[in-house]
Amino acid sequence: MREITLSKAVNEAIAEEMRRDPTVFLIGEDVAEAGTPFKVLAGLVEEFGTKRVIDTPISEPGFTGMAVGAALTGSRPIVDLMFGDFIFLIMDQLCNQAAKACYMSGGKLNVPLVLRTNLGATRRSAAQHSQSLHALVAHIPGLKVAMPSSAYEAKGLMKTAIRDNNPVVIFEDKLMYQDKAPVPEEEYLIPFGKANIKREGTDITLIGTSSMVQVAEKAAALLEKDGISAEVIDPRTIVPLDEETILASVRKTSRAIVIDEGHQSYGVTGEIASRISEKAFYHLDAPVLRMGAMDVPVPFSPALEDLTVPTPEAVAERARQSVRGELFDAA
C-alpha cells in the first residue's frame, strides 16, 4: 500500500469531502495561499477557490462563531485553529454555543462543524504553543473529540467528522505531520467510538491517545524483550469512547496504564482509568496507572521540556512494576 504523510492524509480527506459535498467549506487564518503554517492545506484554494477556502483576520472567536452560524443554516464548516492553545480564545463559541445548540433546542437545531487543531509538546515552542487541551473539550457534552494517531486515522477520522451532524474537534499531533503511514487509495471512513487494537498482548493493556500510541507501541517493544506481553489500544476518539474494547482487554490482561499528552491531573488518563476501575475492578491485579504530561506549563528549554511528557522508557518501567507487583507507591 502507498504511504503518505499525516499532513497529506488530512489534505486528501478534506479535498475528497469538499468534492463530494458543496456545502463543506474551510475557514481560518492563512488557510488559502499559505495552506497554514504547517502547509497541511496546500493546494486546496487552487482547487476550491477563495469562496470555500476562506482566509480570515486573526479573529478566532469571530470566525468560530460565524462557523457555528453557518452550520446552523445549511453549511458544513471546517474551522482551522492554527494551534490547539488558541482553543482558550474560542471556548464560548465552541462550548456554550456549538456544543449546546442541539440540546437546548430540543433537537431542533444541529451544528455540523469540524474544528481541526493540534496538540503536542517537544517542539520547543514554549507554554502557549505546546499544550494538549483535548480534555477541556472532552468535558463538554455535545462535542465529539477525535485524536488520530497516524496518517491512516487522520484521513478516516477527518472524513467521518465532516459527515457527522454534530460539532467534532479533531486534535492532530503537530509533530507527526511529516510521519508517513500506509493509507489506501480507496475511500474509507473510520467510525467514531471504535478503538483499534494496535498490538495484542496478555500481561498488561497500554491505552494511548494520539502521539502516545507510538509511545505505547515502543514501550510494548521494550517490554517484549523482558518477556512481558503488552496489548496496545488506540481509542481513536475519546468522545465517544469505546469502553467495551478497553474493558475487554483489561479483563484479559488484568493490568492497565493510560497514556495521554494532556496534563495528568483532571485529564483523559484519569477518566479512562476510573472507568476501568469502576467496571473491571474485580479483574484487576494492579492499580490502573495514569501517565500524562507533568502538571506544569510546557517549559521552553529542551533540558526541561523533554522531562514533561511520557516516554517509552518511562511507560515500560511503570509496566514492569505493575506486572511484578511492585507498585508500592500506589499500594
Partner: peptide, 16 residues
C-alpha cells in the same frame, strides 16, 4: 538558548 541564566531561566524562550 533555554539556559539557566536567561531572563526566564530558560522557561520562556524567545516569545516570552
Amino acid at each position: 538558548l533555554g539556559k539557566e541564566e536567561g531572563y526566564c531561566r530558560g522557561k520562556g524562550g524567545s516569545m516570552h
